[in-house]
Design a protein around this nucleic acid. Structure first.
Lengths: 147, 147
DNA sequence: GACGGATAGATGTAGCACGCATATAGTGCG
DNA sequence: CGCACTATATGCGTGCTACATCTATCCGTC
């Protein structure tokens, strides 16, 4: 996986057997590849392998998408009309396919902004609920700190 | 589905054919049921059907988890030692199973806080990248607004 | 007393997203 | 030639979710 499960703040992973990361594995963080690809395409159209670097850059190295997954997403978005692609006509280098966003793709990106903001907010709400509940429990349950 | 895809801010869904919500369907928002269940259990141990209401309350009605999914998650967490359950000994009402958190479950909740904060941050980073790229594009591409 | 609705728990199924491994092919290097 | 890097693509397994369905017990009502 990319960086994120390794650099977990609390160093999660030494209680029951599997940290929550495991549970959140796979699609655990929600759809990220598609919006990341859209962001990369908005910044600079190009071929898949390059978009992957672009994604790494615009997220400050925090999101490293799987190459295979990225190609899959690009092809699917093309089928759906959100991007277009043409085989780059270079003589030497390995064949590469240059992608560009369509108008629908731009609209899709706007939808994603709203959706990601929602996810951001919801994650925060849940994290707050969890941490405040944890705080409350330790306060009156651990040592009876009076209060 | 729960409330969230309906009340989408931008009213996403009128371009290519399917809004990003569709793509994010299923596990799109990442794992939410497990942390929500943990939060509910921290606030007030009880039986599944009740935890579902608790979840609705602590999230301000924003998260409405699927009943079936909640039971599944509870059973699995029990298998893994994060919660325990006993059949409530009531004469009348339908049989219910009372759940309680274990020490490992509390640790798991702590892991989830960190993980959810990470997800929150990452969603924000991506949303920022997308929206700033969108802004930049409309600025110099739409009407050549000078500047 | 039959009937629908709420409570309570559980399972089956389908879909989407992801990570990892693997296959292909050209290019440059030692 | 072996090896690494660029570039694209597919197969496979896992995880999480939503929707439909099934059981069973109450309770109020007609």
């Amino acid at each position: 996986m990319g960086p994120m499960c390794e650099e977990g703040p609390g160093g999660g992973g030494m209680h029951g057997g599997r940290p929550c990361c495991k549970r959140a594995g796979g699609a655990g963080r929600g759809a990220l590849v598609e919006p990341a690809a859209l962001a990369a395409l908005l910044n600079k159209a190009g071929h898949g392998y390059d978009l992957r670097r672009e994604i790494r850059e615009i997220t400050g190295g925090e999101l490293e998408v799987d190459a295979g997954g990225l190609y899959r997403v690009l092809r699917r978005m093309e089928e759906e009309g959100f991007v277009t692609s043409v085989w780059a006509e270079s003589d030497s280098a390995p064949q590469r396919r240059d992608y560009a966003l369509t108008a629908e793709g731009r609209d899709l990106a706007e939808d994603w902004v709203a959706h990601l903001r929602e996810r951001e907010r919801l994650s925060g709400v849940l994290a707050d609920a969890l941490s405040s509940a944890l705080k409350a429990e330790t306060a009156h349950g651990e040592e009876a700190v009076d209060e």
